[in-house]
Nucleic acid binder design. Structure first.
Lengths: 208, 208
DNA sequence: GCAGTTCTGTAGCGATCGATGCGGAAGAGG
DNA sequence: CCTCTTCCGCATCGATCGCTACAGAACTGC
């Protein structure tokens, strides 16, 4: 009953699955889910279609894994931003991260979570819904962070954390669209700086 | 040499081209340029592929004409907003129009100019570039309107019209993404109301 | 009636889509 | 060596893509 330490049997994989996945991220990021064909993906990944199916299942599962990799890599600024000490620091880090990540010269412009499947044909409905959930999850995490800031006294008690989170994520998504349209990093960062000079957003005056 | 008042020669068209174009707008709006197949489009338009090609040229030209129709119809709020008397009224009308237009219950959610071709395969590059120009043109019109507001004294003289226009269009594009993600009209309008309580955006303090 | 012109429905074009079957290659264990 | 397992390259699957050739239908002018 001893644990066998022997390596995997059979012919070993002839490519690095992690590196292939990162290549796939770039293709999905630039061309979108349906705009990235298997031929384009496998060429960039350096493997054949057979190897892709054996390693990742199918195109949809490859995309889901690519989105996870994107979330941990180029999109990792969100998780790091949520750990900033104050709500203003959080918002500043989110928007600065969005500007930087969506305008890197050596990478596709824009945000993979925004632009890779905003609309699809009927066959892409599940991926589109998956990305809707991805975006809404991002919003929820920001809202929960701002709720904690209200509870801690970092934000005024009358602050609506959901509204404030909606403001920040709307700016972030808008930045992604602007970056995909070729707008430059400096201009977007200047806009973010100006927007954050007002913090937090004034709340709705109570009707009394 | 009298002007002939006779009708066109040959078999008359058996459908209303205007109505067919409006149907095409809805399909492109919902599924995007590449996500809308000819079969899906012609079925919604109620005509055969032959009739579509005779009336509109090809799929790309149909999309361009559909985008024009969208700009004049559901996207017409922008042109109307630019005629508001003050810069704040302009911004308020743009953002309220974006919220309303992207969240109509009986129409596709989101903005056709944002979501119909943020990413494409190689064959859709021209349409994608056309939409990039469409979005950048929207920004330019807002910037020029704000420049006029500065010239007229409606906005403080130190105001950067381009930065302010970038702020408004970024919010508008972000609203389109949120609407495409299923976020409701009331929440988006509440966010807009809060954002516009700060107006105009404070400018970068001069280094002196 | 007839000829000329234009629109429409069917049927199908070549190309590409995502996805697979199959046989050989490459490793581990005996 | 041989067997077993897994991976890979090639060829190809049926379906769908955007697009069009062709023939008949529908209308105007003579």
């Amino acid at each position: 009953m001893e644990t066998k330490q022997s390596g995997p049997i059979g012919r070993p994989r002839g490519f690095d699955a992690d590196e292939a996945l990162e290549r796939a991220v770039l293709v999905f990021w630039e061309h979108g889910y349906e705009g990235a064909s298997l031929a384009c993906l496998t060429k960039a990944m350096g493997i054949s279609t057979t190897s892709m199916y054996a390693a990742f299942g199918n195109k949809e599962e490859l995309f889901r894994k690519a989105l996870e990799r994107y979330t941990e890599g180029p999109g990792g600024y969100l998780a790091r931003a949520l750990e900033e000490p104050t709500a203003l620091d959080v918002a500043t880090a989110i928007l600065a991260g969005a500007v930087r990540s969506t305008t890197r010269p050596t990478r596709p412009h824009g945000c993979m979570g925004v632009q890779s499947a905003l609309t699809t044909s009927d066959s892409g409905r599940e991926v589109r819904d998956h990305l809707v959930a991805w975006r809404n999850d991002s919003h929820s995490r920001v809202r929960e962070r701002f709720q904690r800031a209200v509870d801690d006294g970092d934000l005024p008690p009358e602050t609506d954390p959901g509204l404030l989170a909606r403001y920040v994520t709307t700016l972030a998504f808008g930045i992604a669209v602007q970056a995909a349209s070729g707008v430059g990093r400096d201009e977007l960062q200047g806009m973010v700086d100006a927007a954050l000079r007002t913090w937090p957003l004034p709340q709705n005056p109570s009707p009394g």
